[in-house]
Design a protein around this nucleic acid. Structure first.
Lengths: 251, 251
DNA sequence: AAAATAGTGTCTTTGAGACAGTATACT
DNA sequence: AGTATACTGTCTCAAAGACACTATTTT
């Protein structure tokens, strides 16, 4: 089979973003309302075309900034900015009725933002609980939620993104990407509880997370923003892989 | 930013395959020799264009069959056929000097084949140790191996594929994909040792692997193909996720 | 007999999970 | 005082790793 560069079918390539955050003890995803057909009026994941001279991750970072005002952090860069990683690529022949589109999905983990969506059109973008978006409220049906599935195959993409986030916080320190730069052990625990949808023992969690080398670095400060006894403040340590890992209960 | 389907830059979309197998206690990858420029004469990962009416995984399975004669197993299907899963997508603007190409890489785990490459051109395809291909023989340099890097960004893709295989056999039963339909505990252990590049205690490995529910099912037969006391034969059990996982030493 | 591989048993250490109990804030 | 959150200590159980020992084959 010779490699014939002149005889290839043309594709459109897009990036779609699964932007997750934790608020009100639940996992939320960013969705935008579609203004044109197909799926006009339906909610969809933010995304757009990759430009002709632009890398895939650059396109994802650009869309992220355009839609949320968030800056993604380079993989090396610590602090400041959301975590961005490639999720998977979706290219079923009929996933877009107009033409052949291959979409490279990216996963973004961001701290809860004071201003919900900066830079975007507030009427056409919102944070929605992933449980609601995926129709898990009740038997898995959409009807009970009076909610309609996301456009295109975005339900599948979102489901894959949520599952990736759930498993990655087990063996990496990525849960800190959902937290502000300084956070308490209790706040980190609520991130795990929201993402996994389980309750964790606060005492064992505290002992485990502070005992894992490189995970947390105390900043010296304390806070009482949760009420109760003042809690020590931490920032993310240098470790990216956790050893031992955080184990998800009930497996 | 309106969604304008008429104004998208055209891309070529290809699939590239990281086909891994274990032979002679080492991890091998399938590479093909390029017949035309660019990178003429260099080794590359097998792959090709996605057709206009073809899904991505279908394209990967088709290329796999064309290059190796292997059939991939559907995700549901057990037995027979190699494991195939999406790895990642590579789309740097200049990764192909001729045009803009986005390549969706797939990872294939296959048992060692009696006939190295069935169906392909034997002179232009071969199995090569991943260590050699990645220049890990010696300080990471290519010179010592008298070997040249793979074409395009295929070194990066291969490295990602090997790393994915290494981590997936930890918490899934995928190591059995490297084994024939019936295999012994010792053969399975040699797979782990080859993929991870470490030595494992045969006794603890045996106790652990036979004690993990759903991992192995005894077939009743025995074999002495390894010499020594006859070993029980097993086939892969239904479990895909291992609990507890196999832990990679020295982490 | 010697060597090789298969398989079992036993001990020690580590870590997960349950949970008692103490510390320090707010109401 | 009562309650909420933070943190420490202790116990038990499960599993990992080290390794002695037995079993059954080939050379």
């Amino acid at each position: 089979m010779p490699y014939d560069p002149s005889a290839f079918p043309p594709f459109a390539v897009t990036v779609d973003l699964v932007v997750l955050t934790v608020r009100k003890d639940a996992l939320y995803a960013l969705v935008v309302r579609r203004g044109e057909p197909p799926y006009q009026g339906r909610w969809a994941l933010p995304g757009g075309f990759v430009r002709g001279d632009e890398g895939l991750e650059a396109a994802a970072a650009r869309e992220l900034t355009e839609e949320t005002g968030l800056r993604s952090q380079a993989l090396e860069d610590q602090d400041a900015g959301a975590h961005l990683e490639q999720l998977a690529t979706y290219g079923a022949p009929q996933r877009d009725p107009r033409m052949r589109v291959v979409s490279v999905a990216y996963l973004v983990l961001a701290p809860d933002l004071p201003s919900p969506i900066a830079g975007g059109d507030a009427r056409s973008a919102r944070w929605a609980p992933t449980d609601t978006l995926l129709g898990a409220g009740d038997g898995g049906g959409w009807e009970a939620e009076q909610q309609v599935p996301l456009a295109f195959d975005h339900d599948e993409i979102l489901r894959d993104g949520v599952e990736r986030a759930r498993s990655k916080i087990e063996y990496s320190s990525l849960a800190t990407a959902f937290c502000p730069p300084e956070f308490t052990v209790g706040e980190l625990r609520r991130v795990y509880e929201a993402v996994w949808g389980v309750a964790l023992d606060p005492r064992n969690f505290h002992r485990k997370v502070t005992g894992t080398p490189g995970f947390l670095v105390p900043t010296g400060g304390t806070t009482t923003r949760q009420g109760g006894r003042p809690a020590q403040l931490f920032r993310a340590g240098g470790a990216t892989l956790l050893n031992p890992p955080m184990l998800r209960p009930e497996v």
